[in-house]
């Protein structure tokens, strides 16, 4: 649907290189194409702006202006910088802090982002890869059949869920989960919460209260990988209000460009830990910055391609 970065830059540089060596202005023209490519990939505007500023210096250097393949040079610089931002400094994206059992993990996010599904996927992973005993509890008293949904998933993956008690509020459920996790000898207990808008004062206060009861070791923001410009608001509001420790991007099995990944990382500074790649319980993978970087640029896995540049 949209041109990828290489195609965009190809057009610009073909025009420019005919005139001989490139000037700094020429490179700035090219960076405007980079900006459009990022915006079409759904990178949030303020993040895209900041990103362009960061690559501008590198791109106006001699490596680009004197290059016979300036387009590829710019692609490489942009690609490297994307990976650097996406990866951040804290390695180990596929790890969760689950020391001192029972370790609470709080799952939060907007409506329909994939929290319940991701809760179960993570539980399955913790159980199978790390041999942990996991308890899942649904604190979603809003959405019809939300608790049943988690209970069914629990059965499917062989992970216990906290028995459903109708009429309990989320804070009371969190307390019961904590007690049950302690008594039952669980290593981890996961709290799946109702979807909420980041501007919904009442529901944001409620999840704060849940956090204060559970003192989570990880607070995971679950975000739809197809999210557009709204990513900055969601990231900022949830992080400011609840304090997240990591992000899971869902629906990365779609054909979206995944620019929300960059927005999330840039705004919160918190690591993207996993990506959801489908509805099935094993469709969860460790976040890989280079793959997502190529995707944001619309070029798939371009590591091989730019190494030649």
């Amino acid at each position: 649907m949209f041109e990828n970065l290489s195609e965009r830059l190809g057009g610009v540089f073909d025009r420019l290189t005919k005139q001989g060596a490139l000037s700094e202005d020429d490179v700035r023209t090219a960076l405007r194409e980079v900006r459009v490519a990022l915006l079409e990939a759904d990178v949030s505007l303020p993040v895209a702006r900041q990103f362009i500023k960061a690559v501008e210096k590198k791109a106006t250097g001699a490596a680009v202006t004197k290059s016979v393949t300036p387009g590829q040079q710019v692609v490489k610089i942009v690609h490297d910088e994307l990976i650097a931002v996406l990866a951040g400094e804290d390695g180990d994206p596929g790890k969760l802090r689950i020391d001192s059992p029972p370790a609470p993990i709080l799952m939060v996010g907007l409506q329909g982002g994939g929290k319940t599904t991701t809760t179960a996927k993570l539980a399955k992973r913790l159980k199978e890869r790390d041999g942990k005993k996991v308890l899942m509890a649904s604190l979603d008293v809003n959405r019809p059949a939300a608790m049943e949904q988690l209970a069914i998933l629990g059965q499917q993956i062989g992970v216990d869920t906290l028995p459903i008690v109708k009429g309990e509020d989320p804070v009371a459920i969190a307390k019961r989960a904590k007690t049950q996790a302690g008594l039952g000898g669980y290593d981890v207990y996961m709290l799946d919460t109702a979807g909420r808008l980041s501007i919904d004062e009442e529901l944001m206060a409620q999840v704060e209260a849940v956090r204060d009861v559970a003192n989570p070791r990880e607070t995971i923001l679950v975000v739809d990988g197809l999210t557009g410009q709204d990513a900055v608001h969601t990231a900022e509001n949830f992080d400011n209000r609840i304090g997240i420790t990591g992000v899971v991007l869902t629906r990365m099995d779609g054909d979206g460009r995944g620019g929300a990944a960059l927005s999330m990382r840039a705004v919160t500074g918190k690591p993207i830990k996993f990506v959801g790649l489908g509805e099935k319980m094993d469709a969860l993978e460790t976040f890989e910055p280079d793959r997502v970087a190529g995707r944001i640029l619309g070029m798939g896995d371009i590591v091989a391609l730019v190494e030649k540049a």
């Binding site: 649907m1 949209f2 079409e40 990939a41 759904d42 907007l110 329909g112 739809d224 197809l226 999210t227 557009g228 410009q229 709204d230 969601t234 779609g254 054909d255 979206g256 460009r257 620019g259 929300a260």
Partner: peptide, 8 residues
């Protein structure tokens, strides 16, 4: 369609 969805 979900309003939070971007260009996809």
């Amino acid at each position: 369609l979900d309003a939070t969805t971007g260009q996809n």
